[in-house]
Design a protein around this nucleic acid. Structure first.
Lengths: 188, 188
DNA sequence: AAGTTCAGCGAATATAAATTCAATGAATAT
DNA sequence: ATATTCATTGAATTTATATTCGCTGAACTT
């Protein structure tokens, strides 16, 4: 293995393990040494790759922003379909690509307080609520989505998703809900 | 003011401020000195009242357990009513008694990992999911609640509530959803 | 009204976690 | 072949925060 490959592999290793621990245990509750131990590497090596815990966190958020901006936009004709497909895609990823799920939670958490402004702003740059409110407005026009402030509806929808995903990471033994149950928050 | 009164007042002051900060900033992100500064008291005084940060946290969870167990059980005839009334009560409290709201979030967070077992077990002792699953089962029998694993439905419902409340504490400017939108997760 | 308790303070200490650094040897470059 | 780079380590250091402690004066007790 070339050094370049090795380097990239380590970086990925560290990021994905950090992602996992940050979303399950919490950022502050996760010690650098927890990550190092989980990967069976020294603490020093971690600092060789990331200059600080905060930078590592920031790198994760950057990765999340990049992943979100990828133009794999969801195909849909009816507004409700958009939300349904989104949830199904997300829940399907829960098993084989846990990082998709974890990243979603990380991004939501990064928008909260207690996070350095610079990082929070990054995370806020890909906020779903306003975008979804637009789709909801369309759905209200064609009668598929219930009446009410589109932003409030969007808020309710995304917070529900968020709550479900956070909990699922911690207690994966509970079955995930059907996508339909959640979209019924919006359905007329 | 007698000393006894003074003592009780301080204890309450400390607890409610800690509750507020713990749920908005997070437990680890809240420094003891943050609490002291917010109350304009010395750090030493805080330790005069609570022997450690963790004990303070535990005292809060104890308070939450006690509050939950109070037999102010919700009156209802139809199962869905139970959930609707619960949400309405909770959301109504958001303005005038923020601590009700905050306490609910604290209890949910205390059930997660990263929390000392002893405290988590306390919080788990008043877990809603199993209790609600029973009510959901009844609702399925009388046809008011949709088909599906009652536990999964209960999980979806409570996680949604949790997600909404957590976010509301951090961005109170977003309007809270109508109770009906959320109960439609369960409605047939 | 003298003695005791206790709220309250702030500086000193302890602890835990993040971060630095010098040393090593294997991979790469010249 | 020799020199240079760099992944890696573990011990030393720094930093952040929790916790302790001795002191003070006001409130209670007898």
């Amino acid at each position: 293995m070339t050094r370049k490959e090795q380097k990239e592999m380590r970086q990925k290793q560290i990021m994905f393990k950090a992602l996992e621990l940050f979303v399950t245990k919490g950022y502050s509750e996760t010690k650098i040494s927890d990550i190092a131990e989980a990967l069976d590497i020294s603490v020093g090596l971690l600092f060789h790759y990331y200059e600080s815990k905060e930078k590592l966190y920031e790198a994760l958020v950057q990765m999340g922003v990049a992943a979100t901006k990828k133009p794999e936009s969801i195909e849909y004709t009816k507004p409700l379909e958009y939300f349904e497909k989104f949830i199904e895609g997300l829940f399907a990823a829960a098993e084989d690509q846990p990082w998709v799920f974890q990243m979603f939670v990380l991004m939501s958490q990064a928008r909260r307080s207690g996070i350095p402004d610079e990082i929070r702003d990054l995370a806020l740059s890909v906020d779903q609520i306003d975008f979804s409110a637009e789709i909801i407005r369309k759905g209200q026009l064609d009668g598929s989505i219930r009446e009410g402030d589109p932003k409030a509806l969007s808020f309710a929808f995304w917070c529900s998703i968020q709550g479900i995903m956070e909990q699922h990471l911690i207690t994966p033994e509970y079955p995930l809900p059907k996508a339909e149950w959640i979209t019924d928050i919006l359905r007329k």
